[in-house]
Design a protein around this nucleic acid. Sequence first.
DNA 1: GTTCCAATTGGAA
DNA 2: GTTCCAATTGGAA
Lengths: 221, 221
Amino acid sequence: MPDINQLSVLEGSENSSTNGMQKRLAAIRSSQDRCSLLFESLNGVIGELEDNYKLSSDKGSSDECSSDKSSNNGSSRKNKSLSPILLKKSSDNEFSAYDDRYPMTDPFDSSLVVIGPSGTSIGRHFYNTIQWSSSSAATRQLLVNIFPGEVLATHTLTGKPSPAFLGRERPSKDQLDPAKTTDIVYIVTNKCGVSAREVRATITTKCADSAKKYRKKRMTF
Amino acid sequence: MPDINQLSVLEGSENSSTNGMQKRLAAIRSSQDRCSLLFESLNGVIGELEDNYKLSSDKGSSDECSSDKSSNNGSSRKNKSLSPILLKKSSDNEFSAYDDRYPMTDPFDSSLVVIGPSGTSIGRHFYNTIQWSSSSAATRQLLVNIFPGEVLATHTLTGKPSPAFLGRERPSKDQLDPAKTTDIVYIVTNKCGVSAREVRATITTKCADSAKKYRKKRMTF
DNA sequence: GTTCCAATTGGAA
DNA sequence: GTTCCAATTGGAA
């Protein structure tokens, strides 16, 4: 969560800040992390309950067709009451840096949704299919939508070689466009209430898995 | 949320902290208060969803309800059905099968505290010094208290070799006593509200760091 | 077919 | 001096 990291600025501005203060900040940070986890947990519960509810209330409709959701009468009330609260939660969860403008509709193309301050945009339809109830699923969905599979296979989060493979270097990989990855981290941390660390780990793993996939393809030649 | 309450301790011991810092801390505190409110709100949503769900699906739902659910009578149903879901979710986050008995005083030695179902015990005085506000700090404190430094340096969580170093094997390491590591995971997940994954990652890292330390010592010979 | 796990590393924080 | 980061791997889940 970006806001917490910003707290480190404090240390710079105050030369008098003590070790004790560091500890306090660490304590705050970790309790906020726990908050995030709890949010995720609650989100999961809500998603589950909602799924059950939908399942039994209107059996025919598939889950995530959201486009015509707003046109529902009566029964849509429950859906409606759910979303705003969840959104409110997300924004409040980001104690500071959260910018209410994102996600926002692309001002030049209403079929696009801008997901973060760096301006990364994705299709609205795809956006509506993202499973925010799982931060790793959401992260991976965003990755495969934003980057071609081969880019994922040939790039990494940082572009740096593994320190564990020094002197045994693998073909070096470029860095995924940082503007896009930071926007992914931005939207997932905000929508799912998880730490940036977690999202970044998922990106790292997804790249590794993609590379593995392409490596296998090569083997078959 | 116990963690947030613990933060109030911060106020007790401020000596050098500046006015600006106070304000920032106040801001954090208030946002955490908001957090608490949101939890209540989310809980309300869950209740509402569940009521709706109950209302519309009183016909043998198939989901993951436990075996004894069918034996419930009408009135107890709502309370009972919500809890399992929350518990289930919780266990995903490793608040898991929380057993109120732990931590407990060692029945044979009141100076010891048993931290988990496997019976790992630690000194009461040490127990009282654990920083539960940081899951990684708490995990590391427990590790160094329970295992000698050299054991940490020569063991790993699983005892398995790194798959990334096949054909280039490092001297193999034994597995840390699983009874003890599971108890560490148990107590930290419960006290800090973090996932088992996170605690296990910290254990892995601590072992790696310890091994590094001892490796350096060797280098100096 | 995809996601997740954890051991290892050097250096950054 | 210690903790944290992320790339890489094979296989488990």
